[in-house]
């Protein structure tokens, strides 16, 4: 059994036949070949798979692709401008060295994007609480917080 879904991803519309059990993260990575969204823990703890679905940050490893039918998705690939100019959050993670190995970074940036959309001037505590669904195993939280503070000033 397959289901036909139409999803707008980073401004482009895609229509595909998918198995109902296909997870949104695998749809994004393996059907659309947008591999910036990472699979970390695969148990909705680490947040590496965070994307924006209909305006809200969600863990795409715990959403069925069929659930996104008719919806809008933004992934890390959708943040920079077409001319390659980085989004202020991407620039901030670069400037403030908000990463070490980089594996958690796409999820960190998508969560921060959701956080700043709802709270443009967060305190450090707001950021630490708001980002508690994203784990960095290089222990780089300090610079991640600095990067989000820096981006909030620039946005």
């Amino acid at each position: 059994m397959t289901v036909t879904i139409t999803v707008e991803v980073n401004g482009e519309s895609y229509t595909n036949d998918v198995e109902p059990r296909l997870l949104l993260t695998h749809y994004i990575r393996e059907v659309l070949n947008l591999t910036g969204t990472h699979v970390g823990c695969d148990t909705s703890n680490c947040g590496a798979c965070t994307i924006i679905l209909d305006g809200k940050a969600v863990k795409s490893c715990t959403v069925l692709a069929v659930r996104a039918n008719g919806g809008k998705v933004t992934t890390i690939e959708g943040l920079a401008k077409k001319n390659g100019e980085l989004h202020p959050l991407q620039d901030a993670f670069w400037e403030k060295h908000g990463l070490q190995c980089g594996f958690c970074t796409p999820g960190m940036i998508m969560s921060a994007y959701d956080l700043l959309s709802n709270n443009p001037n967060p305190s450090e505590q707001d950021i630490r609480e708001g980002m508690s669904g994203n784990l960095c195993r290089c222990t780089g939280y300090h610079n991640i917080v600095k990067a989000i503070e820096y981006a909030a000033q620039k946005m």
């Binding site: 940050a57 715990t62 959403v63 969560s111 959701d114 508690s132 669904g133 994203n134």
Partner: peptide
Amino acid sequence: VADRQVRNM
């Protein structure tokens, strides 16, 4: 409950 991504779903 959990974290903001989980609370969104």
